[in-house]
Simulated scan of single mutants.
Amino acid sequence: MTTALLASALLLFASHAVPSWPGVRPALVARLGRPGFAALHSVGSLVTLALFVFAYAEAGGGMPLFVPADWAPPLVAALMPLVFLLLAARVTTRFGEPAAPNPPRGIYRITRFPGSVGLLLWALLHLQATGDGRRVVLFVTMAAIALFAMAKNDWLLRRSAEGRAFRAETSILPFAAILAGRQRLALAEIGWARPFGGLAAYAAMLAVHPLLFGVDPLWWLG
């Protein structure tokens, strides 16, 4: 683990947190316009991501911090399809704006923030299945980005009547609102295409994971 890796991780987090900080985004949109803000945000995110990837590669294997439990890799393989389903459903289901969210539908009946919950689950699963310093930095950074996004968006929801109504009908913890009777499970709204797409993306990731990251997620099968 190097100072460059830690610094690039902080920059990566800041590239997501600062532009979306309450008050900062509206000011930038007012000055740059929505296309200008989107371009600035995209470029900043890509540059900081590239710096992180470079620092990650230069850090080498990293110092071992702990030894993962034997059950950790199978748990990751078993639960990652859920991550891909959450992400696929988030991308293909409209949320609206934090100040005026659409009525809960599909995946939003299950969890208020499916994208962030998916990213957090991905980070936590991989964090307990690895042990070297540089990957711990990677997954802690991703978890921090997900937690910040949930906290920020939840704060924004509280600021409008529509947002407060959305919060009252949903939960961050998956299925909590359904179990509490504040929401109902409507699988028909999710459909078959989203789970199929999530599983297809998961299968593709299993195939390319050894090439991209040098680790076979199913190595424990022997």
Rank of each mutant, 00 (worst) to 15 (best):
R31F: 08
A203D: 07
L156K: 12
T93W: 04
A30G: 09
V47P: 01
G222C: 05
R94C: 09
A207S: 13
A55E: 04
A77I: 00
Y108P: 00
G36Y: 01
R184Q: 15
M63D: 15
A149E: 13
I190N: 06
W71Q: 02
Q128P: 03
L147H: 09
A180I: 02
L32K: 01
E162R: 15
L10E: 01
L11G: 07
R164H: 10
A59Y: 06
Y202E: 10
M63A: 14
L11I: 04
A123E: 06
L65V: 04
A146I: 10
A165M: 07
L125C: 04
R105F: 15
D154K: 12
T92D: 10
D216M: 10
L124F: 12
P81D: 09
A27M: 05
A17W: 12
G163H: 05
A4R: 08
R182H: 01
A201Q: 09
R158Q: 15
S15D: 06
A88H: 12
T141I: 01
V47H: 03
R105E: 14
Q128G: 13
E58C: 11
G36W: 06
V67F: 07
L49I: 11
I178K: 00
D216K: 03
G44L: 04
G198A: 11
P64D: 04
V53A: 14
Y202D: 09
G36E: 08
A176D: 03
I178N: 04
M80Y: 00
L211M: 12
L124A: 15
L138N: 06
Y56R: 08
E189S: 04
I172K: 06
V137S: 00
F113K: 13
G198K: 11
R31C: 04
A14N: 03
F148K: 08
A78K: 05
L147I: 14
F148Y: 15
P101Q: 07
V137K: 00
G36K: 04
A207R: 14
L75N: 07
L206I: 12
L125W: 05
I145F: 03
A143P: 00
G115Y: 13
F84P: 04
A186M: 14
A200F: 12
I190W: 02
A27T: 03
A176Y: 03
Q183N: 13
S171G: 03
L79A: 08
G163A: 06
